[in-house]
Design a protein around this nucleic acid. Structure first.
Length: 185
DNA sequence: ACTACGATGAACT
DNA sequence: GTTCATCGTAGTA
């Protein structure tokens, strides 16, 4: 496999789909990515749509880095940058490693819910605002993309008002770890 | 300075 | 299905 920055520096919808099945960890805590969304630069739903600002600066930095932002004043969301103002939101992970650490942060909870949602997975992995801009190809992060061709279903993105029909949410077909039911194929 | 509003999650009915 | 906590950011003045 080519290096991560090359993998990410492609069409953001292609990257979002290709990231399904990849393994993401932070300090060894993490698992398999099962749900993503693509946000392009020329995309009315994207934070980068109105140009570079203090908050979205990481989206305009190198591909393969973290873009972390706060939403609704309380939750954090983690994205993987794809260059030129585009990024992939990580919406759900299937917990694999250090599930005990996730439970310490999230409380005793069904494993299906530990990383089922962008805010939940940030809490479970221990993502903080200090991780904004860091490479996902170096500690404390590790991101290993899957060589296998995963069965993916696409549908509309969650929780946006503009460009609401664009089918840029990608889910691992049949996964029990999604933030919401997968769109019907 | 002021204001409106989120790429959400949890706790309700 | 509904409500609401909670605040940084960005747009406006």
């Amino acid at each position: 496999m080519v290096c991560l920055s090359e993998f990410c520096a492609r069409d953001v919808a292609v990257v979002a789909e290709a990231l399904i099945g990849a393994t993401l960890t932070l300090d060894g805590v993490g698992g398999r990515i099962v749900e993503t969304e693509a946000y392009a630069a020329d995309d009315a739903a994207s934070h980068s749509f109105n140009g570079r600002t203090m908050r979205n600066a990481a989206m305009f930095g190198p591909a393969g880095h973290a873009y972390v932002y706060r939403i609704y004043g309380l939750h954090l969301c983690l994205n993987i940058t794809c260059g030129n103002g585009s990024a992939v939101l990580i919406r759900a992970i299937e917990p694999v490693t250090s599930i005990d650490a996730m439970r310490r942060r999230r409380g005793l909870e069904k494993v299906e819910l530990l990383c089922a949602g962008p805010g939940r997975l940030c809490q479970a992995l221990g993502v903080t605002a200090a991780h904004n801009g860091l490479s996902l190809d170096a500690p404390p992060f590790a991101l290993v993309v899957s060589g296998a061709l995963e069965p993916v279903v696409a549908g509309p993105r969650i929780g946006i008002r503009r460009a609401a029909e664009t089918p840029w949410r990608f889910c691992l077909a049949g996964s029990r770890f999604l933030s919401r039911p997968a769109p019907r194929a």
